[in-house]
Design a protein around this nucleic acid. Structure first.
Lengths: 192, 192
DNA sequence: GAGTATACTTACCTACCAGTAAGTTAGTTT
DNA sequence: AAACTAACTTACTGGTAGGTAAGTATACTC
């Protein structure tokens, strides 16, 4: 079973990478199987079809998000730190050749996908927005951030900007991204 | 020649639509030829390969942008109006099933594309940013907008947010987009 | 030690993809 | 009226896509 679990998770990892790099239609089973040294049919064994593979991949991302945010909710660290963590994570993903997050990669192919995946993706997005809202609320309470209006609305705006920024990173380079982060800090009344 | 020009532009139009809906890898020649009632080879006649088709498509979009922005530069209308124009255009595109702009659609496949297309896309993006910066500067001069910091930086932030917003529209629906626009207005110090 | 489950591989299938070469047809030029 | 050109169609190709059925090796169970 050890080898199996390993292969399965390696397939997901590789698919995740390809998904973020090229989107749903931009990669084939061969792009996964070849570098992993397995056959196409091995992928079909674990995930009967491509939709199943994507579903597992979203699930995986979702759990990762849950894990990292729940840790934050527990120890309740400074909001600024959390925001910077997101920035660093985003920049890191971009540099690692992952210009769009799973949700973004799927957006282009969204209505080709079955309901269950659309739902999973939506839940993922909602959870992200909820987390960001929490960070903003906390930051405002603690006097780290100062901004006007609804934190939830501001959170969605920031997430949209980061989503767009990731997409524009490829075309505009890293300076664009860093500039975007700086502007977000400014909009949140962070000085430095 | 009349019929030819017509077919050529109909191919571009359809490709444009497909590109925005599904991205570079998400559509085939058949998706273009079939609804147009022509054969695949007719597309290859006008555009020898898919890259040529995409190049023509970007060119087309670029000219449309130039035309609409130059008109603005000439009559120098109120900045607020221009911003609302962009919002309306974006919402319209989304509703018409075009959730990402050409640049965004290409982002996912960016490094698979030849240099000339990458360059064309980059120029397109830069021109958009320049236009937005101009709108913000004008709005600030005319007292319509009030915001801190560099207009260019703010412009890039807004464009990134809209880019992201378009992507999230599919998942989150129109309310998300309208909420995003409202937040941008708030960030620009527009009351109403 | 026979039976069963897991985790694959081998071999194959049909459909489709972008692309091409060789016509065909209508209009235009000389 | 002959030659030429633009705008296609017909008919095809090699390659790849996702997917499947049947076989095999290994490990675990009773």
């Amino acid at each position: 079973m050890n080898a199996a679990v390993d292969t399965r998770s390696r397939i997901i990892d590789r698919a995740n990478e390809l998904m973020m790099q090229r989107g749903f239609n931009g990669f084939s089973y061969r792009d996964i199987s070849e570098p992993l040294g397995v056959k196409n049919a091995a992928i079909h064994y674990h995930f009967p079809n491509k939709i199943d593979l994507i579903a597992a991949l979203i699930q995986d991302n979702h759990e990762l998000l849950k894990k990292s945010t729940s840790r934050f909710m527990e120890n309740g660290g400074p909001a600024r730190e959390q925001l910077e963590g997101l920035f660093a994570f985003t920049a890191g993903q971009c540099k690692a050749g992952r210009p769009v997050c799973v949700g973004g990669a799927l957006a282009a192919d969204y209505d080709q996908l079955p309901d269950e995946i659309q739902g999973a993706n939506q839940r993922f997005m909602n959870e992200s927005a909820k987390w960001m809202t929490r960070v903003l609320e906390l930051g405002r309470e603690q006097g780290e951030f100062s901004f006007e209006g609804d934190p939830a609305s501001k959170a969605r705006m920031i997430l949209a900007a980061i989503q767009g920024g990731r997409q524009l990173y490829r075309i505009q380079g890293e300076a664009y991204l860093q500039d975007l982060f700086a502007q977000i800090r400014r909009d949140l009344g962070i000085k430095s």
